[in-house]
Lab assay of single mutants.
Amino acid sequence: MAAGGDHGSPDSYRSPLASRYASPEMCFVFSDRYKFRTWRQLWLWLAEAEQTLGLPITDEQIQEMKSNLENIDFKMAAEEEKRLRHDVMAHVHTFGHCCPKAAGIIHLGATSCYVGDNTDLIILRNALDLLLPKLARVISRLADFAKERASLPTLGFTHFQPAQLTTVGKRCCLWIQDLCMDLQNLKRVRDDLRFRGVKGTTGTQASFLQLFEGDDHKVEQLDKMVTEKAGFKRAFIITGQTYTRKVDIEVLSVLASLGASVHKICTDIRLLANLKEMEEPFEKQQIGSSAMPYKRNPMRSERCCSLARHLMTLVMDPLQTASVQWFERTLDDSANRRICLAEAFLTADTILNTLQNISEGLVVYPKVIERRIRQELPFMATENIIMAMVKAGGSRQDCHEKIRVLSQQAASVVKQEGGDNDLIERIQVDAYFSPIHSQLDHLLDPSSFTGRASQQVQRFLEEEVYPLLKPYESVMKVKAELCL
């Protein structure tokens, strides 16, 4: 049975990233139509530049190519590739079939990587351009969430054990800070992308030097003109047959890092959902379990974690691919890159769409948070109580021993009897502590235990987050809708 299948058929496997999760716009960027249309555009740009620099290419040939950029006979191309065992030459023939007058000058002087690699770089750039505003929107939604809850005390956790208090907004800023680093890295790697350009079979530009009869300047002009037509500021000066596969490492490393950030955020949300302090959106008709109707599973956060793990592992592909590119190139890269580049971007696209949807509907339960604080705060307040007693004339050592005994009794009630923490009640009825009984409410005010959390939130948002989001103001209103 021949390899390949009808990918629109229910009898043929289709990647869930495309069929179930990723956005239509990201799927289109990695589609065959987008790819092969870009090949034709690159052939047109090459012909236009070659004509401008004096090669015998007519206006009629150029116009014929322009008129057929979208006229792609995919069936013919597939048949040609089956016959020739070469995808680029299959599309040269297919393009030439609908451009008979231009057929002889299509791909003039070029090698397969002229269309293959340059198209990949265009796709990487455009895919990054799709991700950047999506990530900015996630940051914006979380920034709104953090600002609104900047002063809401909550129990902090280290080692997932109760620690000092923080605020809900401050905790959210930990998430935002990681995503801001990801946004900066995505922008950097996007701006650092260079075009492969017009380089020939081993990167020496020998074929173009021959076409222009040894004119170095025209060869350099050709490279520059096509690079500018493709919208790049610069091209690699040095290439082998391909652009260095280190570029793929750079791009997928940034995406993998984004995956790590999203995994951490969504894990926190899942843990908070278990504590009943916070939940992701839950639709009115949504079913959490087929057997347990009360369940409210954090399905979206779980999906993000599941896909983020996949995204983090994909960076190993370009690392290994770059390491086995012998001399000017081997074909070890080809099949692998067809999979890992598309999957990385479709996965990143999915987790950003999902995280935006989550961040637009996060639900906080202040009463649950308050109750958990009441359970733990008495123990945390013991040092403040000791200091207040010393100020009232008591002995630190005597007070410490009193607190120690009462704390152990209260802990026994919590752990052995399943009761509430009654340390404060014990202190309130103990005559030894009568000098500070009137101060206990103040000493137990949760806001006095959150330090500068709310001020940190305000400063972080104003100095770091809002300036970073400013270039994306025009796209901030787009909502994230999930079908599944």
Rank of each mutant, 00 (worst) to 15 (best):
D182R: 04
V390Y: 11
V189I: 13
E228F: 15
M292T: 00
G418Q: 00
A230Q: 00
M181K: 13
L352V: 09
P281G: 00
G259R: 02
R337M: 05
I57Y: 07
L222T: 05
V478W: 14
K75C: 15
G418H: 01
L121K: 04
C304R: 03
N68G: 06
I373V: 11
M476W: 15
L55S: 05
S334P: 01
L152N: 07
G419S: 10
A18K: 10
Q428E: 09
V226D: 01
L331P: 02
T227L: 09
L209P: 05
Q63K: 11
T350Y: 08
W43L: 10
T58S: 07
L355G: 00
E425M: 09
S395Q: 12
P24L: 14
A308W: 01
S434F: 15
D420Y: 06
L155P: 04
I403L: 09
L443N: 06
T239F: 01
L443A: 06
S301W: 06
E462P: 03
S257G: 13
M181S: 13
R196Y: 13
Q320C: 04
L252V: 11
E80T: 12
K35H: 08
Q210Y: 00
I424Y: 14
H107P: 02
L406W: 06
G96T: 15
L311C: 00
L142E: 04
A47R: 02
E425G: 10
T166H: 04
E50Q: 02
Y432E: 13
L252R: 03
W43S: 07
I436T: 08
I385A: 00
L211Y: 08
K229Q: 07
M292Q: 00
S395W: 06
K199Q: 07
Y472K: 03
Y13G: 13
Q41P: 04
A308Y: 05
Q456S: 10
T313D: 00
M26G: 02
M26H: 10
L331C: 03
Y13W: 14
K295E: 15
P435R: 11
H91Y: 14
Q177S: 13
L211P: 15
T158L: 00
A127R: 01
R374W: 07
V457R: 02
C98S: 10
I265C: 13
R270N: 04
R83G: 12
L128C: 08
V189S: 13
V315N: 07
T111K: 01
S448W: 13
T166V: 01
A206N: 08
V363N: 14
V262W: 06
C113M: 06
I123N: 09
S207Y: 11
V262H: 04
E64C: 04
C266W: 03
H107F: 04
S359Q: 14
E228V: 05
D398N: 13
K82V: 11
E425D: 14
L307C: 15
P318A: 05
N71I: 08
S207F: 09
H217P: 06
A77Y: 06
F208S: 03
T111E: 01
A381W: 03
L423K: 05
E60L: 07
H263T: 11
P293D: 00
F232E: 00
D420R: 04
A344S: 04
Q408R: 09
T58D: 03
T158P: 03
S412A: 08
Y466L: 14
Q428H: 12
K170M: 10
T244W: 08
A163T: 01
R190E: 09
I249N: 08
K82T: 11
P318G: 12
V413F: 11
S19R: 01
K367W: 04
V88I: 15
T158G: 02
I265D: 01
K246Y: 00
P153S: 08
Q320I: 14
T267N: 07
E417T: 07
D248G: 03
V478Y: 09
T227C: 12
A2E: 13
S289G: 01
A410K: 14
V413H: 13
E343L: 03
R296P: 07
I249V: 12
L341I: 09
M89R: 01
F74L: 12
D73K: 03
R149E: 10
R296T: 11
S261N: 01
L341S: 14
I287M: 09
S323A: 09
D248I: 09
S23F: 06
R459A: 11
N185G: 04
L135Y: 10
I373F: 02
C304F: 02
V198I: 13
R194P: 14
D216S: 09
L423N: 07
Q416F: 13
A22V: 09
A110E: 02
H91M: 12
D349L: 04
S253L: 09
S15C: 09
V219G: 08
H7Y: 13
H442V: 14
I72K: 03
K75I: 08
S112K: 04
G8P: 12
D87S: 09
P153T: 09
E481M: 14
V429D: 07
A381Y: 13
Q205A: 14
T244D: 03
R303G: 05
L468R: 11
E401Q: 11
R14G: 12
S31V: 11
Q325V: 11
K276E: 05
Q241G: 01
L252D: 10
E70N: 04
R459P: 07
M299L: 05
K66Q: 14
T52F: 04
M89C: 04
P318F: 07
S447W: 14
A102M: 03
I369S: 10
D223E: 13
F28S: 06
R338C: 01
C266S: 08
K284E: 05
E220R: 10
E250C: 10
D332S: 00
G419L: 13
D430T: 15
I57H: 06
Y13L: 13
F449Q: 04
G104A: 11
D144S: 12
A348V: 11
D215S: 11
E302L: 00
S412C: 08
R270P: 10
Q397A: 10
L468K: 15
K479A: 10
M181F: 15
A308M: 04
E81L: 01
A256G: 12
Q455I: 07
L468Y: 11
L132N: 15
M76S: 10
L377D: 02
S448Q: 15
A273P: 04
S140Y: 15
T52C: 08
T38I: 14
V390W: 07
L193H: 00
S438H: 15
K233M: 13
F28P: 05
I427H: 07
R452L: 09
R309G: 04
A392Q: 09
A410C: 05
E277S: 04
Q63R: 02
Q210R: 11
E81D: 15
R396N: 04
Y243F: 14
K147E: 13
K224L: 13
Q210A: 08
R137A: 11
A143S: 08
C173G: 14
H310A: 13
L142I: 10
E79W: 10
A235P: 06
A410M: 09
V429N: 13
S261F: 00
I369D: 04
L69T: 04
T202C: 14
N297F: 01
G259Q: 00
D182S: 06
T166E: 10
L319Q: 03
T350A: 12
I72R: 04
I237D: 05
R141G: 14
Q61P: 00
S9E: 13
V92T: 14
T201N: 10
L42I: 13
T350P: 11
C304T: 08
L53R: 00
S412T: 15
V475Q: 13
T166C: 10
G451Q: 04
F195Q: 00
L132Y: 11
G156E: 02
K295D: 04
L53I: 10
C305P: 02
A392L: 07
Q161S: 05
L132V: 11
V390L: 03
T167A: 02
Q375A: 14
P281M: 15
L461C: 15
V364C: 15
R296E: 13
L46W: 02
N421Q: 06
K295N: 05
K218V: 05
F30K: 00
P471D: 14
T330F: 08
I339E: 00
D445G: 08
L108T: 10
E228Q: 03
I287L: 08
S474N: 12
G240E: 00
K229N: 04
F95Y: 05
